[in-house]
């Protein structure tokens, strides 16, 4: 099994699917010769030409709308949205149009498109280039939302997304593009709605999306040193959400910390925590803890920005508190 970067994994997934299905095309700003600012799509234009790797003007609502129309009439577009923050520009086309068309048409029309974008702070890019906005789209019925946590997930989930007949938004962590993971030689797809249990444990369940998975894994190592045995789960997709894996784990451990890089208020952590509270209430020995990004616009100054995202130390600290019984009421 070769070890490749998340960026290479995405590149391979796109190339493989474009080879397999001539209806697939890639569209976005500087995706061709420049290969995006993160160099994720480098080389694709050489293989597939500018007809299928399309550079656009800086017109996000425009090319998002084009993709919706092309998808409704037979294409399978992959839209590259350079920063997750630009979701706010494409919201109408994505949420009022793409998300609802299948339903509104009584199942007659469908919109098989993928919107690839990113999330993640601590790149010192300030408030308009650092947001993690997946909860925003997860709120809208009709959109699937995938959150790969390593190169392995990035490739397998993206290939599934491209073959899905619905609009899928996939969020890559922009700080992870150079992180490596082992990826099988042979073709593989990862199903939506299947969480991964990365470490089994009996004392507390740590649920982490995207790069927060690694934060949870590091927290679990810290907890091990204190004799606390944590289970770590990566939901992989938040719509659909694999409730069973999460609930079964919490039924075993009786405690959960949910960690995600979106803002905490009204966020992904809130959704997962409330499902646990509703559906595993009698199994719980402590309140379910949510840990999201602080509810502030992401500040530029490193001394401030670093405070806004969950860290392994803070996750471990909260886990210790609920395991020891020190924390009976939610923070």
């Amino acid at each position: 099994m070769p070890e490749i970067t998340l960026s290479q994994a995405v590149n391979q997934a796109i190339a493989e699917e474009m080879r397999r299905d001539s209806n697939v095309f890639l569209i976005g700003e500087d995706v061709a010769e420049a290969g995006t600012p993160f160099k994720v799509t480098s080389g694709l234009v050489e293989e597939f030409s500018t007809e299928r790797v399309i550079d656009t003007p800086i017109s996000e609502p425009g090319f998002m709308g084009l993709a919706v129309g092309a998808a409704m009439t037979g294409s399978r577009p992959i839209v590259d949205l350079m920063f997750g923050d630009f979701l706010f520009l494409v919201m109408d086309q994505l949420c009022n149009q793409a998300a609802k068309i299948h339903y509104m048409s009584g199942g007659k029309l469908n919109v098989p498109l993928v919107l690839r974008t990113n999330l993640g702070a601590t790149r010192r890019s300030a408030a308009q280039h650092s947001q993690s906005l997946h909860a925003l789209v997860a709120h809208v019925p009709g959109l699937k939302v995938a959150m790969p946590s390593s190169a392995y997930e990035a490739k397998g989930l993206l290939k599934t997304a491209i073959r899905d007949n619905n609009p899928v938004v996939i969020f890559e962590d922009k700080l992870m593009y150079q992180d490596k993971a082992f990826v099988p030689d042979e073709e593989y797809l990862l199903p939506f709605g299947e969480a991964a249990i990365l470490k089994e444990g009996r004392d507390v369940t740590l649920i982490g999306t995207s790069s927060m998975r690694q934060v949870c894994e590091r927290a679990a190592i810290l907890l091990d040193k204190d004799g606390i045995n944590a289970e770590v789960i990566d939901p992989r997709t938040i719509v659909p959400l694999d409730e069973n894996t999460i609930l079964n784990s919490v039924k075993k451990t009786s405690r959960a910390v949910v960690v995600d890089e979106g803002h905490q208020n009204f966020g992904t952590t809130a959704e997962i925590a409330s499902r646990i509270s509703e559906k595993a209430f009698y199994y719980l020995d402590a309140p379910v803890i949510r840990m999201g990004a602080m509810d502030v616009p992401i500040p530029f100054s490193p001394v401030l920005e670093d405070l806004t995202v969950p860290t392994a130390e803070r996750v471990a600290e909260n886990a210790r508190k609920i395991v020891s019984g020190e924390l009976v009421h939610a923070l």
Binding site: R124, F300, L304
Partner: peptide, 16 residues
Amino acid sequence: LGKVEGYCRGKGGSMH
């Protein structure tokens, strides 16, 4: 440089 005496108290940085 993200310092408190900056125009935006370090919250904005170069682009804001």
